[in-house]
Design a protein around this nucleic acid. Structure first.
Lengths: 197, 197
DNA sequence: CACAAAGTAGACAGGTCTGTATATTTTATT
DNA sequence: AATAAAATATACAGACCTGTCTACTTTGTG
């Protein structure tokens, strides 16, 4: 899967990466359909033909930006987990430290993956597929962490933790309040302790 | 608040209600910006001027549809709770029965309130305000139910249950799988039991 | 330097969107 | 039947959108 590929199929290009990052920031803030191609180009300072030389369509740009950020975010999570010491439970809870840091950050404007689910509904739309792939990759990591922590029903628990993470994310966005991360963390802690064998 | 008003400020009109219901269904399925006014009009079989005689703008139509559905949904939840017997814990869990029924229904296409949060980001946009008001009204009901069940920290628990509900809703939509309602219910049960005094 | 690749500028086609204006017809009430 | 209210049909303005085309310029590399 492209999420874990070490060597990207598409060669890196400065302008290409700039477009992906700029597009991500704008879509993240305002949603996908609300932001036009021209807005992205203006902010990036890139010509329109450069965009269409790198991407076949706006949807392709969106999906590519999502894939790139997914890889970056997952790497960040892995790093947070790796820096959380050796206790399996602490490593699992470190995901919620990462969540709290994100929801509290000044630049937080909601989860662009969740927004993609709301805006693209066909099921075969590339942004929706990219969103589902990212969330699945995160869930897979949680399954691994739950298993390593020797918890009961790791697959079920991982799904439940995903519900908590995304619920907190969308509520933090909706009410412009990062305190939901605390609720999420305490809930996760309770569930994890209850699942200890 | 208009959510609880018995007598609406705006007189009911058959065409007006038809527009609200049609708009809701289309927005719910496809998102707000993806559906044009003309699509709503065609499906409802109503002239454009009729719409603009009843609503000042598309955003006003959206917000009005959200307010109407919010009232209907909350009434449905109240009814489900009322039919759940006298045990306070069972009444609280009845909310998750309602959730499961919704997520499993053939017509489920995600939560239009959550979609509004993704598509309207200004904070002052009417659809976003309508979404926050609905979610808050639901949360208030959970606080009441938690209090009646004599649970610890009812306000915190209510927020946590909201995270679970919306997390399950968005995951059921994203992965086209209603099984997340089961995860939500078992999680809620565990939390409620842990919060019993 | 020479040459190929990458990027730029600007116009443009064809479509979509919201919202308005106008004149006519239907519906309801008295 | 008369009158007022509601709804309709249709055209249209003005803006925005994605994607294409063409000709020109910059950049990097052998």
């Amino acid at each position: 899967m492209s999420l874990t590929a070490k060597t990207p199929e598409v060669p890196a290009s400065a302008k290409r990466e700039l477009l992906l990052d700029t597009a991500w920031a704008l879509f993240c803030q305002n949603g996908y359909r609300a932001v036009g191609i021209d807005t992205v180009l203006a902010k990036a300072g890139v010509a329109k033909m450069t965009l269409y030389n790198h991407f076949a369509s706006k949807e392709d740009l969106i999906a590519a930006a999502m894939d790139k950020k997914a890889a970056e975010i997952l790497a960040g999570i892995d790093q947070t987990v790796a820096g959380a010491g050796r206790s399996p439970q602490k490593r699992l809870l470190a995901v919620f430290d990462w969540l709290e840091a994100w929801l509290s950050s000044e630049t937080f404007t909601g989860c662009a993956f969740l927004k993609a689910v709301g805006e693209y509904t066909a099921g075969s739309d590339k942004p929706r597929l990219a969103a589902a792939a990212y969330k699945q990759a995160l869930q897979d990591r949680l399954v691994t962490l739950c298993t390593e922590a020797d918890l009961k029903a790791p697959a079920t628990l991982a799904r439940q933790l995903m519900l908590i993470i995304d619920g907190a994310t969308i509520h933090a966005d909706m009410h412009a309040n990062s305190a939901y991360a605390t609720d999420a963390r305490s809930m996760a802690k309770a569930l994890i302790e209850a699942a200890a064998k």
